[in-house]
Amino acid sequence: MLLEIAHLNVRYEKAVLINDLSLHVDEGELVSLVGPNGAGKSTTLRAISGLVAWEREIKRRSAGGEIVLEGTVTFDGERIDQIPAHEIVRRGLVLCPERRRPFREMTVLENLMAGAYLLRDRQKCRGTLDKVYYLFPLLQQRSRQIAGTLSGGEQQMLAIGRAFMSDPKLLCIDEPSTGLAPLIRREVFDKISEISRLGITILLVEQEVGVVFQMAHRNYVLSSGKIIAEGTGQQLLADEVLRKTYLGL
């Protein structure tokens, strides 16, 4: 197992965001985490990549509201639930965050280089950049353009490319298709499949159940902070109640 989350709990003040969540991702898999808005998908990704703990620390230091974070996260054979976000990346767990969040004032190339911040080896950095340019030729054409002036789809490609520059073993992608036109969505999903075929393990959070169930090896359905179902797309779609109530199909 590359990633194993066991009994994860996240609470903000009184609100329970994640309730005893356990899931795992094997090496080479493309696993999806789906569920309605507000189910806790982003919170799960933020928890494993260290951002919830980071936020908790800020809240504590500024005497803001309390955040509770419990459970264990094991990545590549090591516990990572107690180490800071900037160290987690170094081990190969990389998050491409919700709403893309490019550095808008920087050029495309600078964004990619920011992603490669930990790649001190020039050779390797160059090689990874070539791979990103191969995957997203558009980013090469636009390398000198200011990221804030890219279209939504281009910004999403950039966000994924930037995460790829961090040399991930596990790439977590949060809602890459949200807010994009159907044709562009298709392209984004194709790129994700391509990255998966390169051998990179992917944990994909999405709302677009239809496409995702075809791509992913396995899927988890999340609702109100709890995993309510797990399986292949076929298995999940066969469940009438699940389909109607949670997947909206």
Partner: peptide, 24 residues
């Protein structure tokens, strides 16, 4: 420079900068 890039990243979006491995 690499340091400058990190400083600018941190200034623009410190959460994402953390995600790139920059030590706040």
């Amino acid at each position: 420079t690499r340091l400058g890039l990190a400083i600018r990243s941190m200034a623009e979006d410190r959460e994402v900068a953390n995600l790139m491995g920059m030590n706040e």
